[in-house]
């Protein structure tokens, strides 16, 4: 079987383990796929189109699994996801055209690299500041029950302010609150633009954008972001699949690990208070920003050692946050803090 898939047993095992880690992020945060998988495949020596194409197909598969899991928990706003998809598709097209335009000018790699660093750092700071603010406010500033509480209490202040502007046409979200179609399309277009421009699935932008700008609960933002990832992953997998660059062996091995990880990560959302983990996730994004910056510097200066440091930072920080989620989950179960077994 392994011979058919074109991978050695060691490599297959490595991808399964790596997939598990990515799956935990996908299940818990609704993001964390392509910005970890693509660089890892590139460092392992796979050609860029194979790395991106296989990553997109993997993102699609993992998003299917995680969406099914969040669907069971009633945490997916399909209407919102479908409305966003139109904007996302247009944004992806515009983003890719922008890249090709910059390519003609010979500055695509530089601009994309810097944009990646800035974006990861900005989102990392947002998450870290939010987590630190919650701690100063006593840990529950945004709602007394982050996992299943009243939606209004779980919506950040910035989203409440945006929602206060009633610009028609308005649409009703799954939690009963209203949001302007302009906000939803704008967020979808912006996320698509970034996704197409950076060549990533975009979950690390989509989930915070849904949470902070459209104003759903964090659980609904995660579930809906996964549904968006499913749709954009399918579009990406189809595009790269047509070019024949998706390695099915890599995707299968990653999926075997991530299917288990996503199940555990999704289940952990019922036990682990996001406030306990958000700060680590923010710090991981900041570390990822540093890792990408080091990767860029490594490319400019032709220093392979920096590339390895970049890889270790990326994987090490992700492994650490994954362990933190599992640790908090085990502690919550042991202390009897669980809501209900996540079946």
């Amino acid at each position: 079987m392994l011979g058919l898939l074109g991978l050695s047993a060691e490599l297959f095992g490595l991808f399964v383990a790596f997939g598990f880690m990515v799956g935990v992020f996908f299940g818990f945060f609704g993001m964390g796929g392509s910005f970890l998988v693509t660089p890892a495949l590139l460092i392992l020596g796979y050609p860029t189109p194979v790395a991106i194409g296989s990553s997109m197909a993997f993102v699609f598969g993992t998003a299917v699994i995680a969406t099914l899991k969040h669907h069971d928990a009633g945490q997916v706003d399909y209407r919102l996801g479908a409305l966003m998809f139109v904007g996302i598709t247009v944004g992806i097209e515009l983003g890719s055209r922008l890249v090709f335009g910059l390519e003609v000018l010979g500055i695509a790699s530089l601009v994309v690299g810097v944009a990646y660093v800035v974006l990861l750092a900005a989102i990392g700071i947002l998450f870290t500041r939010s987590a630190l603010g919650d701690e100063e406010d006593g840990g529950d500033a945004e709602g007394e029950d982050a996992t299943d509480g009243a939606p209004d209490d779980d919506v950040p202040e910035i989203a409440r302010k945006i929602k206060s502007y009633h610009i028609p046409p308005m649409t009703t979200l799954a939690d009963g609150s209203k949001a302007s179609l302009w906000t939803i399309s704008g967020v979808g277009g912006g996320v698509g633009l970034i996704s197409g421009f950076l060549g990533v699935g975009g979950g690390f932008v989509r989930m915070p954008a849904i949470y902070y700008l459209i104003g759903t609960s964090l659980a609904a933002a995660v579930g809906t972001s996964l549904f968006g990832g499913l749709m954009s992953g399918a579009v990406g997998a189809f595009t790269y699949g047509r070019a024949g660059v998706i390695d099915v062996g890599i995707v299968t091995a990653l999926l075997i690990g991530s299917a288990l990880g996503a199940r555990i990560g999704s289940g952990a959302t019922a036990y682990v208070d996001e406030d306990d983990v958000t700060i680590y996730f923010g710090l991981m994004l900041l570390t990822a920003s540093l890792a990408v910056a080091l990767g860029e510097v490594s490319a400019w200066l032709s220093v392979p050692a920096l590339d390895r440091v970049s890889f270790l930072l990326l994987i090490g920080s992700a492994l650490f946050v994954c362990a933190v989620i599992l640790y908090h989950g085990v502690v919550a179960i042991r202390d009897g803090d669980d809501v209900a077994p996540a079946t």
Partner: peptide, 18 residues
Amino acid sequence: VAALAVIGLVLVEAALLY
């Protein structure tokens, strides 16, 4: 067709694993 086959395979794998 090849692209759709890959997407179909990934979808089936994902559903079976789930």
